[in-house]
Amino acid sequence: MIPTTRIFDGHNDVLTRTLKAGGVDAADKFLAGVKGHIDAPKAKAGNLGGGFFAIWIPTIEDLDDDLTLMEAPQYDIALPPATNPKNALQICMEETAILFRLEELGALKVCRNAADLRNCLENGTMAAIMHMEGAEAIDADLHALEVMYRAGLRSLGPVWSRPTIFGEGVPFRFPGSPDTGGGLTEAGTRLVRRCNELGIMIDLSHITEKGFWDVARLSDAPLVATHSNAHALCPHVRNLTDRQLKAIAESDGMVGVNFAAAFLREDGRMLSDVPLAQMLRHFDHLIYVLGEDRVGFGSDFDGAIVPREIGDASGLPNLVEAMRAHGYDDALLAKLCHENWLRVLQKTWGA
Rank of each mutant, 00 (worst) to 15 (best):
M1F: 12
R6W: 06
D9R: 08
D9Q: 12
G10D: 09
G10M: 05
L15I: 02
T18W: 08
A21K: 09
A27R: 07
F30E: 07
A32V: 12
V34I: 15
K35W: 11
K35Y: 11
A40R: 13
K42N: 08
A45K: 13
G46L: 05
L48T: 08
G50S: 09
A54C: 13
I55W: 06
I57N: 11
D62A: 13
D66Q: 11
P73H: 06
Q74G: 00
Y75M: 11
N84A: 11
K86C: 00
K86Q: 13
A88H: 07
L89S: 02
C92L: 10
M93D: 10
A97Q: 13
I98T: 01
F100A: 01
L102Y: 06
N113E: 06
A114T: 11
A115Y: 08
L117I: 15
C120P: 06
L121C: 08
L121Y: 09
G124K: 02
M126Y: 13
A127V: 04
M132I: 12
G134Y: 09
A135E: 02
A135R: 02
D139W: 10
L142Q: 04
E146Y: 11
R150N: 14
R150M: 08
G152Y: 07
G157H: 03
P158H: 06
P158F: 09
S161C: 13
R162I: 00
P163T: 01
I165N: 02
G169D: 08
V170K: 04
P171I: 07
P175N: 11
G176P: 01
D179S: 10
T180P: 07
G181L: 08
T189E: 14
L191I: 10
L191D: 05
R194N: 05
N196E: 04
E197D: 15
G199A: 00
I202M: 11
I207E: 02
E209K: 10
K210Q: 14
W213Q: 01
W213D: 01
W213G: 00
V215L: 05
R217C: 06
L218M: 12
P222F: 00
L223R: 04
V224L: 06
T226P: 07
T226L: 11
A232H: 10
A232C: 11
L233P: 10
C234F: 05
P235H: 15
P235E: 11
H236I: 10
V237D: 04
K246M: 11
A247Q: 11
A249N: 04
E250L: 12
D252Y: 00
A260V: 04
R265T: 01
E266V: 01
D267A: 08
A277P: 08
F283T: 03
H285M: 05
L286T: 09
I287G: 04
D293Q: 12
G296P: 09
G303R: 09
A304M: 10
I310T: 06
I310Y: 13
G311I: 03
V320P: 07
E321N: 15
R324I: 03
A325E: 14
L332R: 15
L332A: 14
H338D: 03
N340L: 01
K347C: 01
